[in-house]
Design a protein around this nucleic acid. Structure first.
Lengths: 167, 167
DNA sequence: CACAACTTGATTGCGCACAACCTAATGGGT
DNA sequence: ACCCATTAGGTTGTGCGCAATCAAGTTGTG
């Protein structure tokens, strides 16, 4: 019975929470395969998306876009730097700020990454409309729970204006 | 480049992938708060859901239900055992099998957990129909990517025999 | 019985997430 | 000038998630 009232409390909720959890891990697993060629993990790929989009970005802004804090980003950026994909340097005007930017090698990776999104969408088995619906519902959930800034920022980081000129 | 819908390849896909990722972490964060009273993490809560539902369960079956392997479950169960919520013992008929079961204390925790689902659903800001739609889409994605067993098992672990969801 | 293939869990190592804490730099107020 | 609250990153510790590897037990075949 599709009761909107929670008559058996550990039921519908558990389905939904687990569905999000399982889907997230399944998607991460898919990316794991696709990104293996590039030597990136999924969170590293998300960071590179933002860097490709915005160029030199303070760690703070990266964290705001991806909803990650320095405890996650600092070691992640260190690994990207060790891999030669990212450079970090302190701002001159404010010595507290560290800006991360893709290196030439990191920027070059972007073209190889562009084949990935199409394969991911296809692998989900959803058509464009369903993907849009799913995305809208997830955004509702995230912003309801987030209580702070909506995910618009992060999303726009994922969809760049097709090209930009810079280093 | 494909002309169908993705004109800029790093766009829609990135939105959807990040939306799932962000929503998953937001939900986990919500549970973190709600479960703090019970002394459980979110994955530990999922394990307890299965144990409450099925009683003594081999680790293998737990892994199948939650899509987790022994590398995750072994230390997790060890911590639940150390907390006095779960007991583990080897099967007599097959010494390879370890069955986990809630202790009296673990079973008692169930009643305190029953107040959680309602609060979670409410916090998502979705009504019952939207939650159902979201759940159905996520299941499609998960099973498309999973390529192995569908999430039916895990879902039934979270709820007694429910109702078919409308596509 | 001996032996190879398979199954079940456990262990190890790495990379996130996140809370808690720390340092350094900034800016405001006196 | 001096304090002091604020801010940006970094570090530490805990707990997943997953690949790779291992040991112990089981089963099938001769």
């Amino acid at each position: 019975m599709p009761d909107d009232q929670p008559r058996d409390p550990l039921s519908l909720d558990a389905q939904l929470c687990f569905a999000v959890y399982a889907a997230s891990r399944a998607i991460t697993g898919l990316y794991r395969d696709l990104l293996a060629d590039l030597g990136l993990t999924y969170p590293q790929y998300l960071v590179m998306l933002v860097l490709w989009e915005r160029g030199p970005v303070p760690v703070k802004e990266l964290g705001a876009a991806l909803r990650l804090d320095s405890g996650t980003l600092s070691p992640l950026l260190r690994r990207l730097e060790a891999a030669g994909l990212v450079s970090r340097e302190r701002s001159g005007s404010d010595e507290r700020v560290v800006r991360a930017a893709p290196t030439g090698q990191g920027a070059a990776l972007r073209e190889r990454a562009e084949t990935i999104p199409g394969r991911v969408l296809q692998a989900t088995g959803l058509d464009g409309q369903e993907a849009r619906t799913l995305h809208a519902l997830l955004d509702r959930v995230t912003s309801s729970l987030g209580a702070d800034a909506p995910p618009q920022d992060a999303v726009s980081a994922c969809q760049p204006p097709p090209q930009e000129d810079r280093a």
